[in-house]
């Protein structure tokens, strides 16, 4: 199981991240200041660190200096949105930057992206009776391959990465097709219908009233 260390002094935000990452299937530890974080890094091995910059006593940049030789990927969490701050963080060796306030799907997407870059995410995903191979980009059901178009495949991965989260039509549109969602487009609905039918997931992908769709998987 992938193990993530959350270093964040604000308990509300720390809890928020922990709850969401836990539900997405990650194991999380929380540190509320720099010193504790360093101690925990000594004791355990982590696959990813979410690091707040403004911490009491030892700040995020200093923790970063300590993390560097360990070669553990780091995502900075910060309220500072200026380009200079981003560049400073990335130069120090951060893999990504998450600016507060952030949305849950953005958090999950960035965590997933960084883990994939380090080949730490599972390449074979078993979910709802399907076997998805993210390296070969194949989807199998009972050992039979289901042919999916490029968009349908991307849509499926988007649902899997955000399981149990309601995905809004505009978010889906932006993620899969890019560009701005014009509001009345039926594209998203059509593709979701076809995906449901091909996968036999009529019960699993549920429509959320007036909003969008949600992949419901009971853990």
């Amino acid at each position: 199981m992938i193990r993530i260390l959350i270093v964040e002094d604000e308990k509300a935000i720390s809890d928020l991240i922990r709850m969401n990452l836990f539900e997405a299937g990650y194991f999380c530890d929380c540190a509320f200041d720099g010193m504790t974080a360093v101690n925990m890094l000594d004791e355990n091995k982590y696959d990813l660190i979410l690091l707040d910059i403004l911490l009491p006593e030892v700040d995020g940049y200093e923790v970063m200096e300590y993390v560097k030789p360990l070669e553990v990927p780091v995502i900075f969490l910060t309220a500072k949105a200026s380009v200079d701050d981003r560049v400073k963080g990335l130069k120090l060796g951060a893999d990504d930057y998450l600016v507060k306030p952030f949305e849950i799907i953005e958090l999950l997407a960035r965590v997933e992206a960084v883990l994939r870059r380090y080949n730490l995410s599972q390449s074979i995903i078993e979910i709802g009776g399907l076997t998805v191979d993210t390296k070969a980009r194949t989807v199998k059901k009972e050992n039979l391959e289901i042919p999916l178009t490029k968009k349908e495949y991307e849509l499926l991965i988007f649902f899997i990465n955000n399981k149990n989260i309601a995905l809004f039509r505009d978010k889906i549109y932006e993620k899969i097709w890019g560009g701005d969602y014009m509001g009345d487009s039926r594209t998203v609905d059509l593709h979701v219908q076809r995906l449901r039918k091909k996968l036999g997931w009529e019960q699993l992908i549920t429509a959320v009233y007036k909003v969008g769709y949600r992949l419901e998987i009971n853990q």
Binding site: E10, M19, K100, I165
Partner: peptide
Amino acid sequence: IGSFAHEIKTPLTSIIGYADMLRSKK
């Protein structure tokens, strides 16, 4: 302004994050 932005963003992050959870998750 810098400090103010930080002081505002911290509670906002929690508010937006938890509200996002409430609206999109069971």
